[in-house]
Simulated assay, not measured.
Amino acid sequence: MVRKGRPVAEVTLTDEERETLVRWARRAKSSQALAQRCRIVLGCADGKTNQEVAAELGIWPQTVGKWRRRFVERRLEGLADKPRPGAPRKITDEQVEQVVVATLERTPAGATHWSRASMAAESG
């Protein structure tokens, strides 16, 4: 079958890349954006067109084309978010995780729930 329109980059995966993409797509701690990008690349690697992958995932074909192109150019590193403009973050992901865990798993002494002041004092 002859395809019409602009040629698309063919996506071929190594076994290691396929394992990584499947793991990232299924992992509960992956961001939903990264998981969707992995599903896009996996669909493209199965030989599907941008339109077919887009229809399966409920997204625009242009989005599929963007992530197909980025993966072909930079492989797995191309699926990561690019740095955003603005001041760099002062709070690390580990600090955010510590506050969330403390909020969900502990209660402050002499209180039923955390306030902003009590959590700020606790977490520094």
Rank of each mutant, 00 (worst) to 15 (best):
V2P: 12
R3P: 14
R3N: 12
R3K: 10
K4I: 11
G5F: 00
G5H: 09
R6K: 06
P7R: 10
P7T: 12
V8A: 11
V8C: 12
V8G: 08
A9N: 12
E10R: 14
T12Y: 12
L13R: 07
L13I: 10
T14E: 00
T14N: 03
D15E: 15
R18S: 13
R18L: 02
E19H: 10
L21T: 02
V22G: 05
R23Q: 14
W24A: 15
A25W: 03
A25Y: 13
A25N: 07
R26K: 14
R27I: 09
A28N: 11
S30F: 13
S30P: 15
S31K: 13
Q32C: 10
L34S: 08
A35E: 11
A35N: 07
Q36T: 09
R37F: 14
C38S: 09
C38P: 14
I40E: 10
L42R: 02
L42N: 00
G43Y: 11
G43C: 10
G43N: 05
C44K: 01
T49K: 06
Q51H: 06
E52C: 05
V53G: 14
A54I: 01
A54N: 08
L57D: 07
L57E: 13
Q62H: 13
V64M: 04
V64W: 09
W67D: 14
F71Q: 08
V72W: 02
V72T: 01
V72P: 11
R74T: 12
R74V: 07
R75F: 14
L76N: 11
E77V: 13
E77W: 05
E77C: 07
G78P: 14
A80Q: 04
D81A: 08
P83L: 00
P85G: 01
P88D: 03
R89T: 05
I91L: 09
I91Y: 01
I91F: 00
D93W: 04
D93F: 08
E94K: 04
Q95W: 13
E97F: 09
V99K: 03
T103N: 03
T103W: 05
L104P: 08
L104K: 02
L104D: 10
E105A: 04
A109Y: 07
G110N: 01
G110M: 06
G110P: 10
G110H: 01
G110E: 08
G110T: 00
T112P: 12
T112W: 03
H113V: 02
W114M: 08
R116K: 03
R116C: 07
A117S: 00
A117P: 00
S118H: 02
S118N: 04
S118K: 06
A121C: 08
A121P: 09
A121H: 11
E122Q: 10
E122R: 11
S123Q: 14
G124W: 09
